[in-house]
């Protein structure tokens, strides 16, 4: 699924939200179209590929349930990522109670990345994919939010529940590790 990852127009989100508040249901469709794929990519990178569709849907349902009160203190995209992450954590906690899965840090990313290897056509992309898969869960999350979604360190800190400085350190450590993995 190739998608244009460029372009984050927060003012367009604000306009769409306002239109939705005024009763324009098509604005809701536009908002979902703008963010659903990025959310799915993010949820998938957290190790929830199979449940991504369901989690993304829940994310939008929750967001729209309280969109009336959204004050725009953070960008809509950041807010959606935060909700999605919380849903992933809740899901893992629920599954862990049933001893079906570990917590967010216990995802066996290497196994999953190997299984998905065939989905990527390019050899170069496969190597990069494998190198990213060897990162720690926190490093990988920060790195992908920065590279794939273009979030600032401040936004990453908001989503991942860390500090701006820590997010910067995680990003650069991750980048260095990926480069080392590619050189091995």
């Amino acid at each position: 699924m190739a998608e244009d990852l460029t372009g984050r127009d927060d003012s367009l989100d604000s306009t769409l939200i306002q239109r939705w508040k005024e009763g324009d249901e098509r604005a809701a469709t536009a908002l979902v179209e703008r963010h659903a794929t990025a959310l799915s990519r993010y949820v998938g990178s957290l190790g929830e590929r199979d449940a991504a569709d369901e989690i993304v849907q829940d994310t939008f349902v929750r967001a729209f349930s309280s969109l009336e009160h959204f004050r725009g203190e953070s960008s809509l995209r950041t807010w959606l990522f935060t909700i999605a992450r919380r849903l992933v954590v809740d899901r893992r906690r629920s599954l862990r109670r049933r001893r079906e899965v570990g917590n967010l840090e216990d995802v066996d990313a290497a196994t999953e990345y190997t299984a998905l290897d065939s989905m990527i056509a390019s050899e170069a992309q496969r190597k990069v994919w494998g190198a990213v898969g060897k990162l720690s869960p926190t490093q990988r999350e920060v790195f992908l939010l920065r590279v794939n979604e273009g979030l600032s360190y401040k936004e990453i800190a908001e989503v991942a529940g860390t500090t701006e400085g820590a997010a910067r350190v995680h990003y650069h450590n991750a980048l260095r590790t990926v480069k080392e993995n590619l050189n091995d």
Partner: peptide, 22 residues
């Protein structure tokens, strides 16, 4: 390359189903 790899491996989403559930 990272962006391209993840774009290809993005789990599919059903926009219409999401909108219907809102």
């Amino acid at each position: 390359l990272v962006r391209q790899a993840y774009a290809e491996a993005t789990p599919p989403v059903n926009v219409n189903a999401i909108v219907s559930a809102l």
